[in-house]
């Protein structure tokens, strides 16, 4: 379990992480979402003790990560696939990591096999593609068979087969009772991977809930109407308290009353409707809207 409480990090006058509080529970894949520059990577570094917080605390299974003398058996992390030395072979990189945590060398072969790098293990990392480096980073995170795993944008550079494999791996790790925390700036990636979400914007918490709750809270619906006399219909709907925006081809986008209510209003005023479609915003749109709000909200504040 990862517990973050009032976590704050300032770099000079920039506040990268602003009084962030959330909990990441075991048994789930938790997505960590936010636009670029929202403070996701900084938060992960604070959790892993690479950066010291300006205020607040971050603990992993009850104590700060840096309180440990060895990390791999407690937490596996992939922060950046580039955090390796290009001159070493993948196998040597993992052997050194394993040895530092007293993990048997045989485990290196296991994780290499698991991520599908057995054949490339003897080659120098310099020659690896981004996708191969991601796999190597995931192998490193799995070395210590840890109960808590953190991944920062792990899907970058993976081919479609790799993306499917990673999603399956994350779900399996969560099903085994582990805490899996995965950051991304793309809602579409998380939609099929995570069952819980922590959403941040400009370093602040926007949402900490299940994927379904997030969809229900954030996703609004509107109704697209095509009518013979759109202008009259718009006047009627506006009078009834709806928000009406003109859509393409003379259609109207109506927010407020649902499709049934719009049909009733049209009948009362003897207006002919050609079509009536309910549209639910996608998670992607919900995410964009929520984070856009947070940016807008913060932009008015004195820096």
């Amino acid at each position: 379990m990862i517990e973050v409480t009032e976590l704050t990090k300032r770099f000079g006058r920039t506040t990268a992480v602003d009084r962030l509080t959330f909990t990441v529970r075991p048994g789930h894949v938790t997505g960590f979402l936010g636009p670029n520059g929202a403070g996701k990577s900084t938060t992960l570094r604070l959790i892993l003790g690479l950066n010291d917080p300006t205020g607040g605390t971050a603990t992993v299974d009850g104590r700060p990560f840096r309180a440990r003398s060895r990390g791999l058996r407690d937490v596996g992390a992939l922060l950046d696939a580039g955090d390796v030395h290009g001159g070493r072979s993948g196998a040597a990189h993992l052997r050194a990591l394993a040895r530092s945590n007293a993990i048997p060398a045989a485990r290196v072969e296991e994780v290499l096999h698991e991520v599908g790098l057995t054949k490339a293990a003897g080659r120098r990392i310099r020659g690896y593609s981004l996708g191969m480096r991601q796999r190597l980073g995931i192998a490193g995170a799995l070395l210590g068979d840890p109960p808590v795993l953190l991944f920062d944008e792990p899907l970058n550079g993976l081919d479609p087969e790799g993306v499917l494999w990673v999603r399956g791996l994350f779900r399996r790790l969560a099903a085994e009772g582990r805490t899996v925390f995965v950051s991304s700036h793309m809602m579409a990636e998380m939609e099929h991977t995570a069952d819980r979400l922590v959403v941040v914007g400009r370093g602040r918490l926007i949402a900490d809930e299940s994927l379904t709750e997030f969809a229900a809270r954030a996703g609004h619906t509107d109704v697209t109407v095509r009518a013979a006399e759109p202008d009259r219909l718009a006047a009627v709907l506006t009078a009834a308290g709806a928000t009406v925006r003109p859509g393409p081809d003379g259609a109207l986008a109506v927010t407020g009353p649902d499709a049934t209510r719009i049909g009733e209003l049209a009948l009362e005023h003897r207006l002919l409707l050609n079509s009536l479609t309910t549209r639910t915003a996608s998670l992607e749109e919900a995410f964009m809207e929520l984070t856009a709000d947070s940016v807008e909200y913060l932009a008015g504040e004195p820096r």
Binding site: R45, L48, G49, L50, F65, R66, A67, R68, S69, R70, G71, L72, V75, A77, L79, D80, G82, D83, V84, H85, G86, L97, S100, N101, G140
Partner: peptide, 20 residues
């Protein structure tokens, strides 16, 4: 070599005891 490549972060996540 550790800093220029970024390996230092991987190293310190594996071994948080930096002095050691």
């Amino acid at each position: 070599g550790e800093y220029a490549s970024g390996l230092i972060r991987t190293t310190l996540v594996a071994v948080p005891d930096r002095r050691a």
